[in-house]
Computed example of a mutant assay.
Amino acid sequence: MKTLLLQIFTWWNGQTLGTRYHTWRHGTHVGKDEAGNLYYEGGLDSEGRTRRWVIYNGPAEPSAIPAGWHGWMHHRTDVSPAAETYAARSWEKAHQPNLTGTGRAYRPKGSILNQGARPHVTGDYDAWTPKS
């Protein structure tokens, strides 16, 4: 019952009823990533390409899509990572959630929400003043 209510009243958590219906009618399951996100394709988009979408396992956060699936979602490759032996490159970093708007967000020196003073201006830059 909780899942049904979440699908009715939230769009950011998993899938909505409209997405569930569209996936049932037009979607072909392509694969699943290590985070549990499900990938589908079916129908055509406005550019005549096969439409591709993801159903997130939990809150909808596009930055949680791994690099291999990101390439497939954006039509950089026609072969999904599930259909090939995809291995992450040594330089690829693990997913880090977007922390904007949270207590762990980046706050540079001089920010109202950060301790410390703003660095002093050096060099040829002079701050604007109304009478200059």
Rank of each mutant, 00 (worst) to 15 (best):
W12L: 10
A35K: 12
G14W: 03
A88P: 11
A67W: 09
R52K: 04
W72M: 05
H26M: 10
T23A: 02
G101K: 03
I8C: 11
D33A: 01
S132G: 15
K93E: 11
N13L: 15
D124P: 07
Y106N: 06
K32E: 15
W12N: 13
L17G: 08
A87E: 15
A64W: 05
Y21M: 14
I55R: 08
G68D: 06
T122N: 07
H26K: 13
E84Q: 12
W91F: 14
T77A: 02
R20C: 06
A87V: 15
M73T: 06
N13W: 15
A83R: 08
T19W: 02
G110R: 03
P108N: 00
D45R: 01
L5K: 13
Y39D: 01
T77N: 04
G14Y: 01
R20S: 08
W69F: 04
G42T: 00
L6N: 14
W69C: 03
L99W: 04
A64K: 09
R89Y: 06
T50F: 00
G71I: 06
T77S: 07
T10V: 06
R25I: 09
T85N: 15
S46I: 12
S80Y: 03
K2V: 15
M73V: 05
M1P: 15
K32A: 06
A87M: 13
P66W: 03
T50G: 01
G101D: 06
W69V: 05
D124V: 06
K32F: 06
G14V: 04
E47D: 13
M73I: 08
A88L: 10
Q96P: 03
A94E: 13
G36W: 04
N114R: 15
D45I: 01
G116W: 00
L113Q: 11
Y106H: 08
D33G: 00
W11E: 15
G116Y: 01
Y125R: 07
G18H: 09
G123K: 00
I112F: 13
W12G: 11
Y106T: 07
S63G: 08
T3G: 09
Q7E: 14
R89C: 07
N114P: 04
P130C: 00
P62L: 06
G18W: 10
K93A: 10
Q15T: 08
T122A: 08
V30C: 05
T85R: 14
P81A: 04
D124C: 05
Y86S: 05
N114K: 12
